Computed example of a mutant assay.
Amino acid sequence: MTDPAILDRLAATIEARKSADPATSYVARLLHEGEDKILRKVVEEATEILLASKDGDKRHIARETADLWFHCLVLLAHHGLGPNDVLNELLCREGTSGIDEKALRKMG
């Protein structure tokens, strides 16, 4: 069973944790430690997905992808963005060839 609203709820939780005590909140600690720490976590989780994919364990791939998405949401929050900003970008690209979309980004 899936719940598409989970991203919005998770983003709201992350937003609420911005003002939490870094000693008691993982999100607050990441945000307090700054962008470099958050970026290191994103890279770490992306690497773990690659390794899980090489192993072929679907459950492990899903868990690592969840970790990556979570840390990407923290990064978005750091920049004052949320999942809807990403979804809107995807909507703008819908129906456009990936090749064409990439070329358009280079042009402007």
Rank of each mutant, 00 (worst) to 15 (best):
residue 66 A to T: 14
residue 68 L to G: 07
residue 37 K to G: 00
residue 29 R to P: 00
residue 88 N to K: 01
residue 32 H to V: 01
residue 11 A to M: 08
residue 48 E to M: 11
residue 73 L to D: 03
residue 107 M to I: 10
residue 24 T to Q: 13
residue 86 V to T: 02
residue 5 A to D: 14
residue 32 H to F: 04
residue 99 I to A: 11
residue 93 R to Y: 05
residue 37 K to R: 12
residue 42 V to K: 03
residue 57 D to H: 15
residue 25 S to P: 01
residue 12 A to L: 05
residue 68 L to C: 14
residue 27 V to Q: 00
residue 1 M to Q: 08
residue 55 D to Q: 14
residue 37 K to N: 05
residue 89 E to S: 10
residue 80 G to V: 07
residue 20 A to V: 02
residue 18 K to S: 09
residue 32 H to D: 06
residue 93 R to L: 15
residue 42 V to S: 03
residue 39 L to F: 07
residue 94 E to V: 04
residue 75 L to R: 08
residue 87 L to S: 07
residue 10 L to K: 10
residue 71 H to Q: 12
residue 97 S to E: 06
residue 41 K to I: 03
residue 80 G to D: 04
residue 24 T to R: 07
residue 55 D to F: 01
residue 101 E to C: 00
residue 24 T to F: 05
residue 42 V to N: 03
residue 9 R to K: 12
residue 40 R to G: 08
residue 57 D to A: 15
residue 46 A to K: 07
residue 66 A to C: 11
residue 102 K to E: 07
residue 85 D to W: 02
residue 56 G to P: 11
residue 22 P to F: 01
residue 6 I to W: 06
residue 80 G to T: 03
residue 42 V to G: 03
residue 84 N to L: 05
residue 94 E to L: 08
residue 78 H to T: 04
residue 6 I to N: 06
residue 9 R to M: 11
residue 67 D to C: 08
residue 67 D to K: 09
residue 67 D to M: 06
residue 76 L to C: 12
residue 92 C to V: 02
residue 39 L to E: 09
residue 92 C to N: 08
residue 37 K to Y: 01
residue 43 V to M: 09
residue 51 L to A: 15
residue 41 K to L: 05
residue 27 V to I: 13
residue 86 V to C: 05
residue 24 T to D: 13
residue 52 A to T: 11
residue 80 G to W: 00
residue 4 P to Q: 04
residue 54 K to N: 10
residue 77 A to P: 00
residue 18 K to P: 02
residue 63 R to G: 09
residue 97 S to Q: 03
residue 91 L to S: 05
residue 15 E to H: 12
residue 53 S to P: 00
residue 105 R to T: 09
residue 80 G to I: 02
residue 85 D to C: 06
residue 100 D to L: 05
residue 87 L to R: 04
residue 37 K to M: 10
residue 23 A to G: 03
residue 89 E to L: 14
residue 97 S to L: 06
residue 66 A to L: 13
residue 12 A to N: 09
residue 93 R to P: 01
residue 20 A to L: 03
residue 4 P to H: 05
residue 12 A to D: 12
residue 73 L to S: 12
residue 12 A to P: 01
residue 86 V to Q: 02
residue 100 D to E: 13
residue 64 E to W: 07
residue 91 L to Q: 07
residue 63 R to V: 13
residue 5 A to V: 08
residue 46 A to H: 09
residue 80 G to Y: 01
residue 30 L to N: 02
residue 86 V to L: 11
residue 80 G to H: 03
residue 80 G to S: 05
residue 78 H to K: 09
residue 86 V to A: 07
residue 57 D to G: 07
residue 58 K to G: 10
residue 9 R to T: 09
residue 96 T to A: 04
residue 63 R to H: 13
residue 13 T to L: 11
residue 53 S to Q: 14
residue 69 W to M: 15
residue 25 S to Q: 01
residue 74 V to D: 03
residue 30 L to T: 01
residue 66 A to N: 12
residue 75 L to A: 14
residue 56 G to M: 09
residue 7 L to R: 11
residue 59 R to S: 13
residue 83 P to C: 04
residue 16 A to L: 05
residue 1 M to V: 14
residue 17 R to M: 11
residue 90 L to C: 06
residue 55 D to I: 02
residue 55 D to R: 14
residue 98 G to H: 02
residue 12 A to Q: 11
residue 97 S to V: 04
residue 99 I to F: 05
residue 82 G to L: 00
